[in-house]
Design a protein around this nucleic acid. Sequence first.
DNA 1: ACAGCCTATTTGTCTATACATAACCTCGTT
DNA 2: AACGAGGTTATGTATAGACAAATAGGCTGT
Lengths: 233, 233
Amino acid sequence: MKPPARSSFRAIKDEIARRIGERAWKPGSLIPGEEALAAEFGAARATVNRALQELARAGLIERKRKVGTRVSMHPPREARFAIPLVAEEIRASGAAYGYRLISRTERPATAEDAARFDVPAGETVLHLACLHLAGGRPYQFEDRLINPAAAPRVLEQDFETHGPNEWLVGSAPFSRGEFTFFADLPSAEEARHLAVEPNAPVLVGERRTWLVARPVTAVRMVHPRTHRLTSLL
Amino acid sequence: MKPPARSSFRAIKDEIARRIGERAWKPGSLIPGEEALAAEFGAARATVNRALQELARAGLIERKRKVGTRVSMHPPREARFAIPLVAEEIRASGAAYGYRLISRTERPATAEDAARFDVPAGETVLHLACLHLAGGRPYQFEDRLINPAAAPRVLEQDFETHGPNEWLVGSAPFSRGEFTFFADLPSAEEARHLAVEPNAPVLVGERRTWLVARPVTAVRMVHPRTHRLTSLL
DNA sequence: ACAGCCTATTTGTCTATACATAACCTCGTT
DNA sequence: AACGAGGTTATGTATAGACAAATAGGCTGT
């Protein structure tokens, strides 16, 4: 852990959080100023300042010049989920990463594509299906549409050995995105590739991105039930 | 804007982020050390240090002692999901909000509780089960453990008419939390209360919060398959 | 009563310096 | 070649002192 219980900014932070938790300092009330706390903890004001700033960033306290620092009335209420590349995510977990391209099609956008994506029906789109494996077992089935008009040179890529997101990350910036996830049942194709029962629950993430007004890519990522999406608050 | 364009840690942070965004410093490459940057920007090393620490916290760069600072390989893309109170979420959607307490138990923590939560087995915990309805239809089934040692006076609440969420928000601050989502099958009880088939997929969110080192509450929130969690990037 | 300036207070940030800590590297020993 | 001790180096953290910025609250003049 943190063996040296000296007067580090961490120790100060923890102690203040403890007092707030114990209601020694109640929500909405003012706590002592930096100067006073520095004296109490035998630390420099800069050290206390750092502790307080971190607590403020975490949402536990609110600070205002001249007024002072008060305990928040409402704890933080939003989570930030990192959205890593699948490949990195798998490698980070220690498992061997595997990739298989299932299909690659260039075709005019159908009405269905247009609904799923904003691309005008008739324009050429690239449709990919691929599978990501962790330690040899299916990890994510990916079904992706890419708009070549927003991703220069994407049609030159064959995506035989590397997934499209690795390429897109470095080559197709976007300015706006939308991320949704929900529980679903897999399609027949998804169940087959993921090697799960057709009626087993799967976690689906859908992501669409735009560069200004132009759609870049839309992807449906299907994970077996064991998959968990975690975030620290 | 507010920047006096001095060599503030903010200016340094922005400039470094800009260089990374423009690929002047490529993902995976080492960037100059703090001393060098301090010299370049005409600032103290502490100032550069603060800029770099904030960038590292945001995930744009990775730092290691002796090794130096390198640009992250991952896109620092992250999604922020708001986690509103269920009640507000439902009302915001225009539906009528309903609440039903299903059970309320004070009991010594079992080994199972201890595994799910950090609470030492044997200490008293409060166990609640309740149902949130939107427009009369089941919306979320909530199964919650609360540690009274971290939530003063929680045992005085009966939670007959209001959910524990609403009370905790105002009364039990936390400094650290963890949020996980996954697809699952409902337990028999959950299926019954949510009025879904026992083999229908459900979206489960689990949230655990701590005040520094002490567990505050752990909750499992089960939604029917129709529920979607969306976020803008 | 009121508007507007003035000032004291509190947090925000920067500097310069020092030491602590982690980790890569080299070199000597086995 | 393998291993370990120690040096080197970049980041991590603490400190004291100073000034900047925001702003609540009082003071002043009309």
